[in-house]
């Protein structure tokens, strides 16, 4: 048929618009929008939380999915270590488990932030979020992950190590630092690891493979400095513990208050770096596959 056929309502409206949205009443007496007016006006924006709040919730949920699995593996490792230790020998295994856990935790935070924030900038902007919202969600998400991990690590160190000791009936190497110092140190390391994750992910979006060259700057150096600083608090007055003597001397010589300030400065630099990469990040259209 080449001309519009009967516009009579009684006619068959097999492809009635109404069925598409399921709102109108097909074949019924749907209101006729007056020509030139806009009936069914787009409703005012429904009340919704601020974009960064919505994105932070989304990011936290994403990280929950990634970290829970890893944390379960770590918990199993601890249980095995405690079990072996209870079987008599195994103080070496217990020590290894302990240190492996403590130094792994910040990297789980790093990975989670790379996957759930840094590498997702394009998709978040595509979904309508500003780069500012992505940055804020990344920093808030980092803080949440760092707090959870630092508390968990401190509990493992104090309670878990105690369990191992009683299982072994032997003395294990325990930090002499007070719990709050350990908590503070773990918090700073995890936070730095997490924010480095945002920076590293974003720099790969920005520079592609070239961002590999920047890894020493985007995570290597800041993480190393933060590690040295925090261990100067947790390992103060203890033996070399495998450290080169110059490092031990340096860490023992650092007073606590300036160390805390330096530590915050490193964190601040990484966060500023992430903001610098993200704030004007161009996302030119990629060739469709």
């Amino acid at each position: 048929m080449n001309t519009p056929t009967s516009p009579a309502r009684s006619g068959s409206l097999g492809r009635s618009s109404a069925s598409v949205t399921g709102r109108s009443t097909p074949g019924g007496s749907a209101a006729e929008p007056a020509p030139g007016t806009t009936a069914g006006d787009t409703a005012a924006t429904p009340p919704a939380a601020a974009p960064w709040v919505r994105l932070t919730r989304y990011v936290l949920r994403c990280m929950l999915g990634i970290t829970v699995g890893t944390l379960v593996v770590l918990a199993v490792a601890w249980a095995v270590a405690v079990g072996v230790a209870a079987g008599g020998r195994g103080d070496l295994l217990a020590q290894i488990t302990h240190y492996a856990t403590m130094s792994t935790v910040p990297w789980i935070a790093f990975t989670a932030l790379v996957i759930c924030v840094g590498a997702q900038v394009r998709h978040y902007v595509h979904a309508g979020f500003t780069r500012r919202a992505v940055t804020v969600a990344g920093l808030v998400g980092s803080l949440v992950v760092a707090v959870v991990f630092a508390v968990g690590a401190t509990v493992l160190d104090r309670v878990g190590l105690g369990l191992m000791e009683s299982a072994l009936g032997d003395e294990l190497f325990v930090h002499e630092a007070p719990w709050w110092a350990l908590l503070g140190a773990m918090l700073m390391v995890c936070l730095t690891g997490a924010v480095c994750g945002v920076l590293v992910g974003a720099s790969f979006v920005r520079w592609g493979g070239w961002a590999t060259v920047l890894l020493p700057l985007t995570v290597g150096l800041p993480y190393f400095v933060q590690d040295v600083l925090t261990r100067s608090v947790t390992l103060r007055g203890e033996g070399p513990g495998g450290r080169p003597s110059w490092l031990q001397d340096l860490q023992d010589a650092l007073p606590t208050a300036p160390t805390a300030v330096l530590s915050l400065l490193v964190l601040g630099l990484v966060a500023a770096g992430a903001w610098l990469v993200l704030r004007r990040l161009p996302l030119p259209p990629r060739a469709s596959a």
């Binding site: 519009p4 056929t5 009967s6 516009p7 009579a8 309502r9 009684s10 006619g11 409206l13 492809r15 009635s16 618009s17 109404a18 598409v20 109108s24 007496s29 749907a30 209101a31 006729e32 929008p33 020509p35």
Partner: peptide, 16 residues
Amino acid sequence: ALQEGNQVMSTTQYAT
């Protein structure tokens, strides 16, 4: 084909 008094399609129906 269209009688006086008949209802015609809405603009939306016509458009789709």
